[in-house]
């Protein structure tokens, strides 16, 4: 790992040129995923019973796009960011699962 990164740093400038392209890709992906979710609910094109898992799945994909591109989690030096967000997500899923299956109301 050490030798490899060292060589790259010698050849390239320290900071890679960041283009707007990735961010526009993330934007278009978000638009498409959002539109799919709205259409799935509005026109009931997805078999009923599967609509909820379908749109929640789309939401997670969109969230990952935004976290990795817009919030730069794809760039190096973001190990802590990943630990932080995914640890948070773990507790969220635990809470949601508990509340969905074990709440007495």
């Amino acid at each position: 790992m050490g030798a490899h990164t060292h060589n790259e740093e010698v050849r390239k400038p320290k900071v890679k040129k960041e283009s707007a392209k990735n961010h526009i890709v993330a934007f278009i992906a978000s638009l498409v995923l959002t539109a799919l979710a709205f259409v799935a609910v509005a026109y009931e094109v997805v078999p009923s019973g599967f609509t909820v898992p379908f749109i929640v799945g789309l939401a997670f994909v969109q969230a990952l796009f935004q976290l990795f591109f817009w919030m730069h989690m794809d760039q190096k030096g973001h190990e802590f960011a990943r630990i932080s967000i995914f640890a948070g997500l773990f507790f969220v899923l635990a809470a949601v699962i508990v509340f969905v299956f074990w709440v007495w109301v």
Partner: peptide
């Protein structure tokens, strides 16, 4: 980022409550 991890848990608890109720 640590703060955002905490915010995730905070919103998650509100989501769980909403889904249940």
């Amino acid at each position: 980022w640590l703060f955002l991890g905490g915010e995730t848990v905070l919103f998650g608890s509100l989501f769980a409550t909403f889904i249940a109720l």
